[in-house]
Nucleic acid binder design. Structure first.
Lengths: 314, 314
DNA sequence: TGTTATCATAAGGTATTGCTTATGGTGTGC
DNA sequence: GCACACCATAAGCAATACCTTATGATAACA
């Protein structure tokens, strides 16, 4: 059986009017054109759908069944159009994001505002480590990833969209805190608490010191950012982290920024996608949003942080 | 938007395999043919449905929506086919009958057996008088009518399918009952209770006597068959009715058949339809059923009646 | 780096679709 | 019986649907 939507459409009109001529007028067709469509439909089901008795037309039993079917099918088509239309105009959609755990804090702020502006959109946010992020991209299981330092050569396309200042922090009682200015040579005498091998922050720091032809002593490496900060608070050593993760600690004064020469190291946050991936409409909009508007949104919570920075360099 | 079922079918296969080549094999098509169908579908909705990243294919959000739609639509089409198939093979359907009130009794017996053989069929039965029957036929509100003597010239097609013996009956105490053989001349001395002008039974009787060049005296005419029999039981006169309506009375011996020469008059029951009406499948089957099998079914209840007939002519 | 698998694109041909206008047939009602 | 309204049928035509084969491009993988 090979019906066409056209046949159903025409049949519906005929079934409503029970009059080919009027149906033809409604459809802006000639009367034989209508007759033919109905006839073809009848051939498809190999049964008469309409019977003519005297002057009047009647639907047969099968005709009534077909009429119900036609109407239901056409309604579904309308629903589909509507749904797709909404998807295209972003009334609906599913934004699948993944972010590095260090980025979690400020991405949530970005998302909160974005979600507010697009109430019907579903958002998935996965917070995980670097290697999982790359895995997600590879499997096409997310639209966009936000991370600190994307690797080259994975068929990825990365765009920096926000400054990411890495700062040296220590507990308030630490002797370096009192100093107005700390040189790198002084700094490397300290013992470092630092992220695990393979972490984006870790490799950024390593590249920095390598560039200065200096080495630092690792006291402790951990994979949990919160644990690192806690160890630092306890005075186990100094650490280098994205200032964006320090909001709470700076406010509570459990950690302070050390004013080291050459710091902050200005890295960036990147939005990353698979090369060649055609982004969904909603993902495109989100990407535009963070590329263009992230600074403004973020500034509101980074401003107080930068004040800490200024204080430390006073 | 002008989708085709073909596009949906092909898209479904592709969406299931996420592989054009395999889909092509399943569909016994070349691979480009499959690509084209999908592409055309994408053009219809003006949105990509499938995206290719590296080697793998993925459904877009809209693609998933479309896939759901395609599957649902195809399932409905299958359901429709099934329903129509059942209708055609009479698993379903609606049989609309109308019968003359005098035929009611035995038609119910026919219907009971028929309904039993076709459990899913809906049956409407209208029991009414002659003029209403013709009206129903005229408005195409029933498939078939069963009546005693259909009129000519109403664009009707009538087929006799069962013997309809008209007999003279009287109350058991009536003097004619005692006689072995009653001549017509003797009979017309009696006073008759008879159906109203226009009734099928009435006109059959009138034609019979006119053929014999005799006239009968009407004591009472009534439109209700039961009332006629009751008046006869009370001894108001004799009457002539279809023997098929006498089952109860003969069994209860409240009426007896008078053995008149030339009686029973063998008329017929007819099945009547509008000329040119294409009967629904179920109506066709019902018509065949009564044309071929009515005698056998009816015989079981008419046999005892014919015994009464034999007794009266002994 | 070459091979393999896979999809996209192009060109070409045939069948079918979907209309049109013209015309014929039929039931209804005056 | 005639006119009217309405549907069926036929012929003709342009558009396009649908498939094929041939070929090109690209990613994965050895």
């Amino acid at each position: 059986m090979n019906l066409t939507f056209r046949q159903l459409k025409v049949f519906d009109v005929v079934a409503r009017h029970l009059n080919y001529t009027k149906a033809a007028k409604e459809l802006h067709l000639s009367q034989p054109a209508v007759s033919m469509q109905v006839k073809q439909l009848e051939e498809q089901v190999d049964t008469p759908l309409i019977e003519k008795l005297g002057k009047k037309l009647y639907l047969t039993d099968v005709g009534m069944e077909m009429h119900n079917y036609a109407r239901s099918t056409m309604q579904q088509l309308i629903d589909l159009e509507e749904t797709i239309g909404q998807m295209k105009t972003l009334q609906q959609g599913h934004l699948k994001l993944a972010v590095a755990s260090t980025a979690n804090h400020f991405v949530i702020r970005l998302l909160a505002r974005f979600a507010n502006a697009h109430p019907k959109i579903r958002i998935s946010l996965e917070v995980t480590n670097r290697s999982s992020l790359l895995d997600l991209l590879d499997k096409n299981e997310c639209d966009l990833v936000i991370m600190g330092s994307p690797p080259d050569g994975h068929n990825l396309m990365s765009l920096p969209f926000l400054e990411n200042p890495l700062v040296v922090v220590a507990c308030p009682e630490h002797r370096l805190i009192a100093k107005k200015k700390v040189t790198l040579k002084e700094l490397i005498k300290e013992e470092f608490i630092i992220r695990e091998e393979g972490s984006g922050t870790r490799s950024a720091i390593e590249r920095f010191f390598a560039g200065q032809e200096l080495a630092f002593k690792t006291k402790l490496d951990m994979s949990n950012n919160r644990a690192i900060k806690h160890a630092t608070e306890e005075g186990l050593g100094v650490t280098i982290v994205s200032m964006h993760t320090l909001e709470l600690e700076l406010k509570a004064k459990t950690l302070k920024i050390v004013n080291v020469e050459g710091f902050p190291i200005y890295r960036h946050w990147y939005v990353v996608q698979r090369e060649g991936k055609r982004l969904s409409p909603i993902a495109t909009v989100f990407k535009d949003y963070i590329m263009e508007g992230a600074d403004d949104v973020i500034e509101e919570f980074t401003r107080p942080l930068y004040q800490h920075l200024e204080q430390s360099s006073r």
